[in-house]
């Protein structure tokens, strides 16, 4: 049985290091992992830059295949060790400028095949209202990708530890009201539904999942920012970006 932190052992910077290795298969797998995690914000940025859906998909794959791996970006990344989000965004901006200079989608298709991106064909960035910059689009989707990883991981842990009821409580009282805007049921109602002895017990169960949510978020962000001290700063930075006046509110 894998421990609760097992999945965190392979984190972004270690994936990058693996992507720098000489083993071709290992490099390709690491590349696929990086692309799986970050292609959506990259794609959203490129769409907002004015590229068509198809162009943005090609460019996204090209960015990971040619720029992140091919042009030694990962080697530079090792030296930077700063916030990975900002690093990737800066690299993307440079890439987009280059694309603007030579805009031929087909010629940008990388040699040797494309990195498979799960869900790329069906993924569509919600149309942002006017005034949202490509950088903001990137950051919105970065936050969404981060939260999706966290929620999936917390759900996975609850399942692994036979805490389905814990998850159900968290989902009904915390997650669903935020994501669907629904009115949460009362704790007493949930206790009756799940056969929980007391509301205090149910509250403790929710605290357990919230704590796990926080720990998971910390674990996901930590390797992206270089130090423990920078974790809260990175999350507050994302909150500030999301709180600025603009679209998709």
């Amino acid at each position: 049985m894998g421990g609760p932190n097992e999945r965190f052992l392979t984190t972004d910077w270690t994936v990058i290091l693996r992507a720098q290795g000489r083993n071709k298969q290992s490099r390709r797998e690491a590349m696929g992992e990086l692309a799986r995690r970050y292609w959506k914000p990259v794609y959203a940025y490129l769409r907002r830059k004015g590229n068509s859906n198809e162009e943005a998909k090609d460019l996204t794959q090209g960015f990971f295949e040619r720029v992140v791996l091919g042009r030694g970006l990962v080697q530079k990344a090792d030296a930077v060790k700063g916030r990975f989000r900002n690093f990737l965004l800066r690299s993307l901006e440079l890439y987009a400028r280059g694309v603007h200079r030579a805009k031929t989608a087909k010629r940008r298709r990388p040699d040797g095949g494309l990195v498979p991106l799960e869900g790329l064909e069906s993924f569509n960035v919600p149309e942002p209202a006017d005034g949202v910059t490509p950088e903001e689009c990137f950051n919105f989707n970065w936050a969404a990708a981060l939260l999706e990883e966290v929620v999936e991981e917390v759900k996975h842990q609850c399942r692994t530890f036979h805490e389905q009821v814990h998850w159900e409580l968290f989902h009904a009282l915390v997650l669903k009201p935020i994501t669907e805007g629904s009115t949460p049921p009362s704790i007493a109602e949930l206790c009756a539904r799940h056969g929980i002895a007391s509301t205090a017990k149910a509250s403790n169960m929710i605290v357990t999942v919230k704590r796990r949510f926080r720990a998971t978020l910390m674990c996901q962000v930590r390797p992206l920012v270089g130090s423990d001290a920078a974790v809260d700063d990175e999350i507050r930075d994302l909150l500030e970006i999301l709180s600025r006046n603009g679209a998709r509110s």
Binding site: F140, L147, I178, F213, I235, L238, L239, L242, S249
Partner: peptide, 12 residues
């Protein structure tokens, strides 16, 4: 954006 922010706050 507000929903994403609310979810991030759960983590804080």
């Amino acid at each position: 954006r507000n929903q994403l922010a609310d979810l991030l706050r759960v983590g804080l």
